[in-house]
Structures are given as C-alpha cells and as structure tokens.
C-alpha cells in the first residue's frame, strides 16, 4: 500500500515534506498515476497538491499573470483574460489531452513532467515564463528555458515544489499562433508542435518573432537563426520558407512509435508557413 497525504495549505505541505523527504508530490495525477500503474509501485508516500489554495488560481497584474502551479487547464481555459491576452497559451491548452484530462491536469504538472511533447512548453517558452520554485525556507525564480535539462529532468531539487508561474503579457504581438500535429484531433500526443509570437509594424515589417517547437528535440527547440531571418522582413511565403529551413537545422528529433525523425523535422518546419495565412 502507498500512503497518500492531502495537505490543505502550504504550511501543511512543508511539514509533510519535512517528515517524508522521499515523498512524491502530484497534482492532477494524469502523468504520475499513469506511470505508477505501469510500474506497480508500492510502499511510497504520495502527496496530492490539489487542495492547496495557495497553489491554485490566476492573478493578473499590470504586466502579466501569476498562475498557481496546481491550476488546472480547465480553470486556465475558462479565464477570459488568459484567452484574450495570451491566446497562444489558450490555443495550446485547448488541444491538450481531452476535456476530462484538462479538468484534472495542471500546468505545473505539465512543466515538471518535462516531456518533450508537453503542450504548454512551446507557448511558455515564447512567453519567457519564469518559475517560482519554493521550499519551506524560501523560494527562487528560474526561467523556464533553463528549467528543463533533459526529457523528464528538471532543476527541481529535493523537497522543492513549483508554486507559481509568471507570464508577462506579450505586448504588441499581433500574431499569436499555436499548432500541434498529432495522430487524431483530441487525445493526441504531439508529433510536433509550434508556438509563435510575431510583432509587425503598421507597414507589415516583422519587428520581432518568437518561435518554439515541441517534440523535435529533447526539450523545446528554439531557433535564433530562424527568428533573425524573419526580423526586418515582411511576412511572405518566401521569407517563411527560408526561416523554416533554418529552423529545421536547430531540431534534433527522434524516431518513435508515433513518427520518424524525418517527418518530425519536415512537419515542424512546415508549420511555420501557416503563420502567413
């Protein structure tokens, strides 16, 4: 039998973690419980984070949002300000899993699972999200871009919990685009995905482009070369194709059961062409 603890607030969580330093935390359980089923785990201590009020909810301030790590995708999607201000994230969430998965799964879980196919990661990368990692004794802020070190590996230290995600509003980015290629429309793990933010001048010249791809490398792939190739140009098929070529070079996809590396690279680069439409 595994023990399962259900702390109601942060102080309770810290005391549980102090007593059970080996405990595994989970939020929605949509990754952890699936993994445990495969492994028949026994004699573990689990701490379920779903009831900790401090870890759920969305707060907006002048230049961005604070999102509790245990906020469910449903909660995020139902938030009108998130949909309005950061559609790139909302679009990604609306393709993630399925409605019941979105009712249970959390943004913090998606980040900490650190899957190359995590659907929130490309949008959070282009949004330059910061993570607040906390322990009983304090907290630190790390940028998401450095947090994930390899598939399934993060900078989280023992006893540390992701508490908040900080997103700044992408002011002036008129184009906010997300697309995922999967094997079906819902319940589809990304074969490739792409999030893009593009800021153009009134004359249509690209002033800044932020693009990130999922499922084409050990973690999210960005391509400064591709971004540079877009900057200063107008959005045209030729410009996008040139950038797509450069982007393909930054990718290091693998073959797996869902697709080959060749397809992943090709399709991920192709996704860039869609921003022109």
């Amino acid at each position: 039998m595994n023990r399962v603890l259900l702390p109601k607030n942060l102080p309770e969580l810290w005391s549980f973690l102090e007593n059970e330093p080996e405990a595994r935390v989970y939020a929605g359980g949509t990754d952890l419980l699936v993994q445990m089923r495969a492994r028949c785990a026994d004699n573990l201590v689990l701490i379920c984070l779903e009831r900790i009020a401090e870890l759920t909810g969305i707060r907006e301030d002048e230049d961005g949002f604070w999102i509790g790590a245990c906020t469910t995708f449903r909660h995020l999607l139902n938030h009108p300000r998130i949909r309005e201000q950061i559609p790139v994230l909302a679009k990604a969430l609306s393709t993630l899993g399925s409605p019941p998965i979105r009712n249970m799964a959390t943004i913090g879980g998606n980040i900490c699972t650190a899957s190359p196919a995590g659907d929130t990661l490309p949008p959070l990368y282009v949004l330059d999200a910061d993570l607040i990692l906390s322990t009983q004794s304090g907290e630190r802020v790390v940028p998401l871009s450095g947090f994930i070190t390899a598939p399934g590996k993060t900078q989280l230290e023992r006893g540390e919990v992701l508490t908040q995600i900080r997103i700044k509003k992408p002011e002036g980015y008129r184009v906010q685009h997300f697309e995922k290629v999967g094997q079906r429309k819902a319940l589809a793990c990304a074969i490739a995905s792409m999030a893009a933010l593009v800021k153009t001048s009134p004359a249509g010249v690209i002033e800044s482009a932020r693009i990130a791809w999922g499922s084409v490398g050990p973690t999210v792939v960005v391509s400064p070369d591709a971004e540079a190739a877009l900057t200063g140009k107008t959005l045209s098929p030729a410009v996008l194709e040139a950038a797509a070529d450069l982007a393909g070079k930054a990718m290091a996809p693998i073959d797996d059961i869902r697709a080959t590396a060749v397809y992943r690279r090709r399709v991920a680069a192709n996704l860039l062409l869609r921003i022109g439409t």
């Binding site: 259900l6 949509t30 419980l33 019941p100 009712n103 249970m104």
Partner: peptide
C-alpha cells in the same frame, strides 16, 4: 467518468483520498 462537484473526471486516475 464520474462527476466531481459537477466536473467530469476520470476515476481510474484518482486515489481514494481525493474524494474527501
């Protein structure tokens, strides 16, 4: 599927304590 406070959730991915 079950409804938890009206929301559809998956009872195969919930542990008993979460019913509390």
């Amino acid at each position: 599927t079950i409804l938890v406070d009206g929301e559809n959730r998956l009872s195969c991915l919930m542990l008993a304590v979460q019913l509390e």
